[in-house]
Write a protein that binds this DNA or RNA. Structure first.
Length: 268
DNA sequence: TCTTTATGGCGAT
DNA sequence: TCGCCCTAAAGAT
């Protein structure tokens, strides 16, 4: 279950395992079988991520993958075990295999379609050279809440429900503030913070957002137990006391997702 | 053995 | 705003 850091990590993992070598491409589930047959045996030139979109380059074509909420990519050593019926895409070379299950998208696309995906996405804090000003132009004009804007991939690419909740907490921002009421300084600080947090996320392959001085050990508390695996301030901590001020963490539905925030700390 | 939930996003209404 | 798509694991019974 992925935010942008997962996809950038997957691009790196694919490059390490498969780049510059021929790769066997198959679709045990069948739904990508025709394209797989076309690509089978080609050399994988490279992999690229933009937000939550992953692109694998094979000759003059790309496999465009979006994991959605349920999709997963798993790696293992060759020889690969018999593939389960749910494996949409399997990549295999002499050393490694990769299985893709449950993606929202897995499609063979050309250069033009790939360009169109990039064009409809906002800047990505993990892409070197992406410009936070493009996001600011939209945010500063918008009557939508900051919480909704951060999740809008056309505004910023790669932020999901965890990074949204956590970055708003770290900057003390009320999630219901409107975009147009955010200051330029606040946005610049959030963008810079996201770049640091998400790079850390790529490195560790999980989301950690708690500052050293607030780690449970440092605060004399046991580490949190949550199946998403990282150390966070507010995500999925509804009704628990805030690590910093003790207020009860609140939750509310916003655009079909659960929003979490601390009413004591997030007052700006 | 059920029901619920999840780090997403699309299109119809 | 709603329903829908995709899968797996945790939680409830």
């Amino acid at each position: 279950m992925p935010e942008g850091h997962t996809i950038h990590r997957l691009a790196r993992d694919h490059t390490e395992r498969f780049a510059a070598r021929p790769v066997r491409v198959s679709s045990p589930q069948g739904r990508f079988a025709q394209s797989a047959a076309l690509l089978d045996g080609r050399e994988l030139a490279g992999a690229e991520a933009h937000g939550k979109h992953l692109f694998l380059e094979l000759g003059d074509a790309w496999i465009h993958i979006h994991l959605g909420l349920f999709g997963k990519l798993g790696f293992g050593p060759a020889p690969a075990p018999p593939a389960a019926e749910t494996v949409r895409l399997r990549l295999l070379n002499e050393d490694h295999y990769a299985d893709l299950r449950g993606p929202t998208a897995c499609a063979l696309i050309g250069e033009g379609e790939k360009k169109a995906v990039h064009e409809r996405l906002g800047p990505d804090p993990l892409r070197a050279g992406d410009d936070p000003d493009r996001a600011w132009k939209r945010i500063s004009r918008s009557r939508t809440t900051v919480a909704a804007l951060l999740m809008d991939q056309k505004v910023v690419a790669g932020i999901g429900n965890v990074y949204r909740a956590e970055v708003l907490f770290r900057h003390g921002i009320d999630p219901y503030r409107l975009g147009k009421d955010l200051t330029r300084a606040e946005w610049d600080a959030m963008w810079a913070d996201l770049a640091v947090l998400m790079r850390e996320g790529v490195r560790n392959n999980r989301i950690d957002t708690v500052r050293d001085e607030h780690l449970p050990e440092a605060m004399g508390r046991p580490p949190r137990v949550d199946d998403h695996g990282g150390e966070v301030y507010v995500y999925r901590r509804a009704n628990l006391p805030c690590h910093i001020c003790g207020s009860e963490i609140r939750t509310a539905g916003l655009a079909a997702r659960n929003l979490f925030w601390c009413p004591g700390c997030q007052t700006r």
